[in-house]
């Protein structure tokens, strides 16, 4: 009952969130059931059918090898969302742990963690990601690590700042009086209270992470053909735009844009859901 009331309030306060979550649901369905709902095999080539414009048989048209673009867009959701989610989770876990520690301990811990995140920020982030993938090897796994590394400073900074202002709050003192050790205070009192602003960061970051993964694929790093991935599809389709075959790049590009859009819309709603002071 309470959960329904809470959901209803969150929804009524953030109507755009509903659109965000709706889009997210569509993407999740695409990611989970992709191969099952795709009308064609995304990897099957048919040379006779190459570069067909959108039609009833192929709503998004076909590419230069005669593969169905719609099927490829649907199937690519799993890879793109997978990379984005795992990268963001990785940087969230590592970044908030480091940030909380820095904000709580202060002193040397704070200085070391702070300089670490400054160092990462000092590089142009996309170039850093390129460097990481190029040196560590061209695999999906390394794309995830690279994306996680470049997002790390944002989590460190948010967590550090939020913990630092709450470090001496009354409820932290009270927890100490109740016999809680520092680590327990950090885990049970401070971390849950910095979650709401982190949620906003997560949803924005999901968008960036998708763009980043697609960007790396676009320049030929990370995911390799013939695997279906939005970034590669845009890259492959880009050269056909001049000759009039616009659908090759447009549809994966639109999927990419909608995904980023949907994560940005979800941010406020997510914050309201994890924050008890906002839901009652």
């Amino acid at each position: 009952m309470a959960a329904i009331a809470r959901l209803r309030y969150t929804v009524s306060e953030n109507p755009l969130t509903v659109i965000g979550f709706g889009l997210f649901a569509v993407f999740v369905i695409m990611a989970v059931f992709g191969p099952a709902i795709a009308p064609y095999d995304p990897l099957a080539t048919r040379a006779v059918n190459a570069l067909q414009p959108p039609s009833m048989a192929h709503p998004f048209g076909t590419d230069h090898l005669g593969r169905d673009v719609l099927s490829r867009v649907i199937v690519a959701a799993r890879l793109d969302l997978g990379i984005a989610l795992s990268a963001v989770m990785l940087s969230f876990v590592v970044g908030s742990a480091l940030g909380c520690l820095a904000g709580f301990r202060g002193g040397w811990t704070d200085r070391i963690v702070g300089r670490l995140s400054d160092t990462i920020m000092a590089f142009p982030l996309f170039v850093l990601a390129m460097g990481v993938v190029a040196t560590m090897g061209n695999t999906v796994q390394n794309v995830i690590y690279a994306t996680a590394v470049i997002n790390l400073p944002f989590y460190i900074r948010v967590a550090r700042a939020e913990v630092a202002v709450r470090r001496n709050a009354g409820y932290v003192q009270a927890a100490r009086l109740s016999g809680s050790s520092d680590l327990r205070i950090l885990a049970t009192q401070l971390f849950p209270n910095v979650l709401p602003p982190m949620m906003v960061q997560i949803s924005l970051n999901l968008g960036w992470a998708i763009l980043n993964a697609a960007g790396l694929s676009f320049i030929g790093l990370g995911v390799r053909p013939p695997a279906a991935e939005w970034g590669i599809m845009v890259a492959e389709g880009a050269s056909y735009i001049v000759s009039g075959e616009w659908w090759l790049a447009l549809f994966p590009g639109a999927a990419l844009m909608l995904a980023v859009f949907c994560f940005n819309l979800m941010g406020d709603g997510l914050r309201d859901m994890v924050d008890p002071t906002r839901r009652t």
Binding site: Y171, Q173, A174, G179, N193, P276, T277
Partner: peptide, 18 residues
């Protein structure tokens, strides 16, 4: 620890909002 306890000035601030 349990033998000495304290009641804080700002009751709101001393309770974890979560």
């Amino acid at each position: 620890r349990g033998r000495i306890q304290m009641v804080f000035q700002d009751a709101h601030d001393s309770l974890d909002p979560r």
